[in-house]
Write a protein that binds this DNA or RNA. Structure first.
Lengths: 250, 250
DNA sequence: CAAGCCCGTCTTGCATGCAAGCTTGCAACT
DNA sequence: AGTTGCAAGCTTGCATGCAAGACGGGCTTG
């Protein structure tokens, strides 16, 4: 009889905890949570195969299960999480074949981005691109793999932004999230950082020269080399599990 | 006071209506509804700008608002629908610039699909591809634009399927849904059907010959021509609204 | 007569309750 | 001892209730 008369909906509206830095710009809890989950995946805090528990997340973020469920639906629609029958969702786990396929798609899309960026880049973005490249160089000199990972992301982000193609931007973002955990592992491979910087330099030059065709080819090759790096990377993980990478739960 | 004692959850679980042909394979209502909505968008039954009302949909499908909401979240995550502040969602409306951008992405992705299909196609898919092409020819002869639209979709679907690249398949599906309403309009333009068939024939041949590079170039050009068709199409809609196509609600 | 304000209504967003299904651990049986 | 049945719990999936914005209409006022 309780909820009919009073229903006592807890309290006005308790913000999750407001101590977190990323808050204060979202208006819907579900969107907020979706963003946070994406961020955690991108940053490698949750790994592929990780089980996403509704109640745990709702408690962690201090909201009810409904917005959490809606956020999970969004991740699922983006392909970032996969439903496992009636038994909840888990962060998408790519097989080796899927990963290679995904990277071929990323290569193709980033090639288009580079091509369009070469034609559409704005003056201020030229500066940003140079700066991002220099940050990569700096991280390489220092041998700081974490910094390089971030600087590398920034470089690619600027290229994509300079394409001024929102649709392309969305697609690349989605795929980048899916492949981020694996790309991260590859970035940390010995030779990759050293190899990337001169490739970036060429791409940078081609874009600054407004040479779309060349930028496209270089970028495609750049990502393809990344793919080849996987072959090397696989030598490491071959021991553990054959079909699936990062099988932490299984 | 009623729901405390009985709570009367309607009935056991009433399937939406079970008369529909596509039912009987989904296990979650939200996923089911998401598929139906996608289908309606693809088929052109709901047009860009259409307001998606939770209650209306829940009544139409005979379920509560929760699964409907979850389905809408998925569409929103896919970019098929956009949230309009606190005022619900509407089917994504592409500006002219966005549409052109989206088609350039589709072109790039379908080119990759054609390339990989040329290398990976299976024997039975060769037959399917031929059949799909013949269906296009038949529809052209009959001058049946609706049939051609479907046959054309089928042809491209087979190419994508033959790429055996699930990631690519997902991405193309998503983008195809977004651009479907506009592609549909273009397909119905006078010359497009006639022009498409010989292009398909060349693509078909290149794939059957396992010539990935040529298939890729042909497919890219094929879609690009579609894009150019937009310029013509725009002559028609220029009168109504400038930035947005199909602005039915505004 | 026009413009602005206020209030009613409608719709979304979130919380919570309830039912069904998967999982798991125990126990009984072969 | 191994296997199979079963039951309890835990988790998801859906329904519903309630509160907070957003829109619209009508009224008032300059």
């Amino acid at each position: 009889m309780a909820q009919v008369t009073s229903a006592a909906p807890k309290v006005a509206r308790r913000r999750p905890d407001s101590t977190s830095p990323a808050a204060a710009e979202e208006m819907s809890l579900s969107g907020d949570i979706a963003k946070r989950l994406e961020e955690e995946i991108l940053r490698g805090r949750v790994r592929p195969g990780h089980r996403l528990d509704e109640r745990e997340l709702s408690e962690r973020y201090g909201v009810s299960r409904t917005p959490v469920r809606e956020a999970l639906q969004r991740l699922s629609a983006s392909g970032l999480a996969v439903a496992r029958g009636r038994q909840g969702l888990q962060v998408a786990q790519l097989s080796v074949a899927d990963l290679i396929d995904a990277l071929s798609v990323v290569a193709q899309l980033e090639a288009l981005a580079a091509s369009q960026a070469a034609r559409r880049i704005l003056p201020e973005q030229r500066s940003l691109l140079r700066e991002a490249h220099e940050a990569c160089e700096l991280a390489l000199e220092k041998g700081d793999a974490d910094a390089f990972y971030d600087a590398n992301l920034a470089f690619h982000d600027v290229v994509v932004a300079a394409s001024h193609n929102r649709v392309l931007q969305d697609e690349i973002r989605r795929l980048s999230l899916k492949t981020a955990p694996y790309r991260r592992a590859i970035t940390f491979q010995p030779g990759r950082m050293t190899g990337s910087v001169p490739e970036h330099a060429e791409i940078l030059q081609a874009i600054l020269d407004n040479d779309g065709k060349r930028a496209s080819e270089l970028m495609s090759r750049h990502i393809t080399l990344l793919t080849e790096g996987i072959a090397d990377f696989l030598q490491f993980v071959r021991a553990s599990g054959d079909r699936v990478l990062f099988a932490e739960t299984a």
